[in-house]
C-alpha cells in the first residue's frame, strides 16, 4: 500500500465522506461517493448512484492502492446519498 490518503487517518477520511472519489485496487478503478473508510481494515465504501437505484461497493483495505478525491456532491446528490444510509451521525458531519 503506497497511498498517502490511506495513511492520513480518520479525520481526513471523515472530511471526505460524501465526496466523489476514485479508488484504484488491483488494476481496477472504481468511482463513487464515499460512505466511509473502516478505521480497522481501511476498507473503502463507495455508493454508486444510478438513474434508478444504487449499489454499494466495498473495496477491501488490503487491495486498495490509491484513492483520489474528485469532487464535492451538489445538494441534490447529497440528499440522494443521505437517503440510502441515514445513521444519526450523518447529522453531525460538517457540511
Amino acid at each position: 500500500m503506497q497511498c498517502g490518503w490511506l495513511q492520513s487517518g480518520p479525520q481526513l477520511w471523515l472530511s471526505c465522506v460524501h465526496r466523489q472519489v476514485m479508488v484504484k485496487a488491483q488494476g481496477e478503478e472504481h468511482r463513487g461517493w464515499l460512505l466511509t473508510v473502516d478505521p480497522v481494515s481501511r476498507s473503502v465504501v463507495l455508493l454508486d448512484l444510478r438513474a434508478e437505484g444504487a449499489s454499494v461497493r466495498v473495496v477491501m483495505g488490503h487491495a486498495v492502492e490509491h484513492v483520489e478525491v474528485l469532487q464535492e456532491a451538489d445538494q441534490e446528490t447529497l440528499e440522494r446519498i443521505r437517503s440510502f444510509f441515514v445513521p444519526q451521525e450523518t447529522l453531525s458531519l460538517d457540511p
Binding site: 466511509t36 465504501v45 466495498v58 444510509f85
Partner: peptide, 13 residues
C-alpha cells in the same frame, strides 16, 4: 470522534 463515526458507518454497512 472521527474514528467512531467511520467505524459505525462501516458496521452499519
Amino acid at each position: 470522534h472521527a474514528r467512531s463515526v467511520l467505524r459505525e458507518r462501516f458496521l452499519r454497512c
